[in-house]
Design a protein around this nucleic acid. Structure first.
Length: 274
DNA sequence: CAACGGACCTGCCTGC
DNA sequence: TGCAGGCAGGTCCGTT
């Protein structure tokens, strides 16, 4: 489900409502996420004051005066603010009891998410330490474009796969990888190592633009994503290729095609993308 | 190294 | 109506 824009939308709401408050308690009803919920969390988090909420790629980092907690939403994870006493439903695995008497509840049907203790320096946690740069840097699209181009040397895998590799660039998932390739006029199946530096710069600019627009609209809801206040993302109808197999390209009218790369769908317009 | 398939889970949609 | 099969926003591991 959630890629960078959905995670960033979640981060902003969590930051707004958690910062400065305390976590009074933690209830873990089902700790069997993709990696088991860290026991350290229930031991250390109660009583902690929240300093802020950060994000690295698709990972959220709740920073407290006792250390950081890392949350990943996997494919179907979601945090929601609910009133205290609200009965947990199916797949409501974790509750954080907030000092204002509210609950922050984690729901995740597929249980591909993660909830990990990040300690004093969460950025050194194994799940964050090896992540590539965020898709935009201080040097702008040119710098990220050059970085992608360097990372692509001697790589024959499809461009779409390069973009999904979190060690190359953090936070890009299947929707936005496909959308960025479309905007840049590059086919997702093109061998990453055979694309010019100039085209990588255009791709990086497209990536930055599509992510910024998606964040502005609160992300994309394909089926079940919602932010912590229950709002769905509004970017879905801005997608130009993702999920649009057989529908006309909004640029040229040619039918959008779907292919499978490494067992995951990729979408492109055969006329606009080469 | 890089690339690929499979594993981890549940739910929803389609077609028979 | 039921059931099988395919598909889904993401990582991580083992094998070639």
């Amino acid at each position: 489900m959630p890629e960078l824009p959905e995670v960033e939308t979640t981060r902003r709401l969590l930051a707004r409502r958690l910062a400065g408050g305390r976590v009074a308690g933690v209830s873990v009803r089902c700790g069997a996420l993709r990696t088991p919920v860290d026991a350290e969390i229930a031991a250390r988090l109660p009583g902690a004051r929240v300093l802020g909420v950060g994000r690295r790629g698709k990972f959220l980092v709740i920073e407290t005066d006792r250390g950081g907690v890392i949350s990943h939403l996997g494919m179907s994870g979601r945090w929601s603010f609910v009133p205290d006493g609200c009965a947990p439903g199916k797949h409501d695995h974790i509750d954080l009891h907030l000092d204002g008497g509210e609950l922050l509840r984690y729901h995740d049907p597929r249980r591909f998410g993660a909830f990990l203790w990040g300690g004093e320096s969460p950025s050194e946690h194994p799940s964050l330490a090896r992540l590539g740069p965020e898709p935009w840097g201080e040097g702008g699209a040119e710098e990220i474009g050059d970085h992608l181009w360097s990372a692509a040397r001697r790589r024959s895998a499809p461009l779409r796969n390069l973009l999904l590799d979190g060690e190359v660039v953090a936070g890009v998932g299947n929707i936005y990888a496909n959308e960025a390739a479309h905007r840049a006029g590059i086919r997702p199946q093109r061998s990453a190592g055979k694309i010019s530096r100039v085209r990588y710069r255009a791709l990086a600019a497209a990536l930055e633009a599509v992510l910024a627009e998606a964040i502005e609209r609160g992300g994309t809801t394909l089926r079940d994503y919602a932010d912590p206040e229950g709002n769905e993302g509004g970017f879905g109808d801005r997608c130009l290729v993702y999920g649009r197999e057989g529908e006309p390209c909004r640029g040229c009218g040619k039918r959008v095609e779907r292919i499978v790369l490494s067992a995951r769908s990729a979408f492109f317009c055969p006329r606009c993308q080469r």
